[in-house]
Write a protein that binds this DNA or RNA. Sequence first.
DNA 1: ACATGATTCACCCAACTGGTTGACTGAACT
DNA 2: AGTTCAGTCAACCAGTTGGGTGAATCATGT
Lengths: 118, 118
Amino acid sequence: MLFTHMVEPQKSNRLNTVLKAASDPTRRAILTLLAQQGPLRVTDIARRFEMSLNSISKHIKVLEGSGLVTRRTEWREHLIEVNMAPLSEIDQWFAELRSIWALRLDALDAALKEDHND
Amino acid sequence: MLFTHMVEPQKSNRLNTVLKAASDPTRRAILTLLAQQGPLRVTDIARRFEMSLNSISKHIKVLEGSGLVTRRTEWREHLIEVNMAPLSEIDQWFAELRSIWALRLDALDAALKEDHND
DNA sequence: ACATGATTCACCCAACTGGTTGACTGAACT
DNA sequence: AGTTCAGTCAACCAGTTGGGTGAATCATGT
């Protein structure tokens, strides 16, 4: 059986965007900053980095696309807030992978015991 | 204070490589396959995908570089095995981020209560 | 009306990625 | 000696990514 397209596409896509978003150090730093400072404006975030405002704006859009961050536009200021929920999607995938792995080991163990009993 | 280069570089690099490695669907599928089937040869892995052996070989090298997979070269066959350990690095980062977030909320809560008591 | 401030949009560019093919190495079986 | 099998290396291509600049938008304050 081929492995490509074996997972439910929408779930896999969400995993993809979240992991991709999280796999950039600048974006992780933004998340940390937001976690400890609470909602911030784009400009305030950009000030913390030695990088152009525009680049930060782009990074924020990526984070927003992954759901790791939400935007509350109040008048002309965009308040950016961290959102931990999507992380659990990754947690879940890890758990799944680990359980698959553990299951195989259990089966192996059982087979060995069976063998020994013969 | 600027946020760039605020984290210990080697730890951040490991996080980077692990997250990057995990953020490709083909590579995640390889990990799942290995978790449920146990150690496999490169060719056996490649057979499961509609993709060239070379591409799979490259993906495996990326996974190997992140530590998510180890290689045991027996005679001319390379046995590839999944290794869950690096995942905990990501777990750890999640936990850290969540606790930073929770801490801020607690502080906020305390401040509100203090305010109320005045 | 006009300037200012906060953000995004539209490009541009260099670097990286994911995939391909073809040539290569090294061991094993005729 | 020649062939086959397992796998990597090297070069290449198209698409994406991370960064930058300058103009555009849009609401407020003067």
